[in-house]
Design a protein around this nucleic acid. Structure first.
Length: 398
DNA sequence: CCTCCACAGGAATTTGCGGGGT
DNA sequence: ACCCCGCAAATTCCTGTGGAGG
């Protein structure tokens, strides 16, 4: 900043309303683009809830950033309002199964989000209660407060246990709840998810199936254009949106990513004190978006998983070959060094093996099994998916 | 195709935590 | 204030096996 007057006083030269480019931003109905048919199907599946009837359970498939969560949130909000006009009390619980992956965590979070202590007199403690107790409390809350409870289970394929699905889908027939009814909207990235369920759950959970296809470049362009008001008038070059849309379409048709890249493009322009958002900034914005994703994923990992990633990164950086695979035992030694530096006691190797395979499941590392010859046994070797420098950077932030 | 063993990974057990019940 | 319970994380114990070299 060269002149002192522009520290805080001046309006943002690039952005008029940055909120429009947040991923959490929930647009109005006419701003959801290219999903008219899907919204219609979804609305149709749960419409009975408007009059207090039982909604159909729905399973939604589609890759990340195809608008699954967005449409579910939008349509259930709409439903809640429409039902309220009919004097029907509908409430929606949104569960991210990536965060809450065990049965107990899920019941607890549902109970918590439906609960209103003043109305029900029921508390939902974070711990100290058994799973069945959480269920008891949940049924009590639902009966006391709601006519219809809609439960959105996002990333449902990350659930470790499908007992919760059994309980929820059969709550009404098992007379766990009396005057109320429940509807489940399951959201999965994996098309084949349904096959992994047992028959009972499968038939009750997927009364309706919906598939959300990836967005094509035209749709992405329309989505980005609809959020172009985020920028001040005239600062956004005409070629920027088509280029961002083309990049995102080429990769996965991920709208969230496209919006992220557009936001970073604006931020980079701002950092250059440029008063125009130029096409030249798009590639760097693309890189930045990927780094941010990595940092977000790593940030959510437990402390010791981060130390492991750092240890592995360290070993890889010491080697001349960038594609080396490090045996788990060596990763463990490097990890012990990192722990020493951080002043923490290292976990035992058995636990570390479990953490490593979790990291592999998240595609943060890749594992492979190698034998070492007669009488030498077989072992697992590890490698980072992303560049070591990026990983170390991501571990330090947060 | 067989062999051999260090390591993988399943199962049982302990530890730590944060609540209820009394 | 005390003890006890259930869960999740971590540890301990232990058996089974992947796969290069023979």
């Amino acid at each position: 900043m060269s002149d002192t007057e522009s520290f805080f006083g001046d309006p943002d030269p690039i952005f008029a309303d940055k909120e429009l480019l947040r991923v959490s931003h929930l647009p109005e109905g006419d701003r959801i683009i290219g999903r008219e048919k899907e919204l219609g199907n979804l609305a149709n599946a749960i419409k009975d809830a408007k009059r207090g009837g039982t909604p159909n359970n729905v399973l939604i498939y589609g890759k990340t950033g195809t608008g699954k969560s967005l449409c579910s949130k939008y349509i259930t909000r709409d439903l809640t309002e429409a039902a309220a006009d009919n004097g029907v009390h509908v409430d929606v619980a949104y569960i991210d199964c990536f965060q809450d992956s065990t049965e107990t965590q899920v019941v607890r979070t549902i109970a918590k989000s439906f609960n209103d202590r003043d109305e029900t007199g029921v508390t939902v403690p974070v711990s100290g209660v058994s799973t069945s107790d959480y269920y008891r409390r949940l049924w009590k809350i639902v009966d006391a407060r709601l006519d219809v409870g809609i439960i959105i289970l996002d990333e449902i394929d990350k659930l470790e246990d499908d007992n919760i699905l059994m309980q929820l889908s059969r709550a009404a027939e098992a007379e766990k709840v009396n005057d109320s009814t429940l509807g489940i909207i399951g959201i999965s990235n994996k098309i084949r998810y349904k096959e992994s369920l047992n028959e009972r759950v499968k038939s009750s959970l997927s009364e309706r199936d919906l598939v959300f296809p990836p967005y094509d470049a035209n749709q992405l362009r329309a989505i980005l254009s609809s959020r172009a008001d985020a920028f001040r008038e005239g600062v956004l070059d005409d070629e920027v949106i088509p280029k961002v849309a083309a990049l995102a379409a080429k990769e996965h048709g991920d709208a969230r990513k496209a919006i992220g890249i557009l936001r970073y493009t604006g931020e980079i322009a701002d950092e250059h004190s440029d008063d125009r958002v130029r096409i030249e900034y798009v590639d760097e914005a693309h890189d930045r978006e990927e780094e941010a994703r990595l940092a977000e994923l790593i940030g959510k990992q437990p402390e010791h998983s981060k130390y492991l990633l750092q240890g592995l990164a360290l070993q890889i950086q010491q080697s001349t070959d960038p594609d080396v695979m490090i045996p788990s035992k060596q990763v463990y030694s490097a990890y012990e060094v990192v722990c020493e530096r951080e002043g923490t006691d290292p976990l035992k190797i058995r636990r570390v093996r479990d953490l490593l395979s979790e990291l592999a499941f998240l595609s943060l590392i890749e594992q492979d099994r190698k034998g070492r010859g007669k009488g030498k046994g077989a072992h697992t070797v590890n490698r980072l998916v992303d560049a070591p420098e990026l990983v170390v950077e991501a571990c330090k932030s947060v």
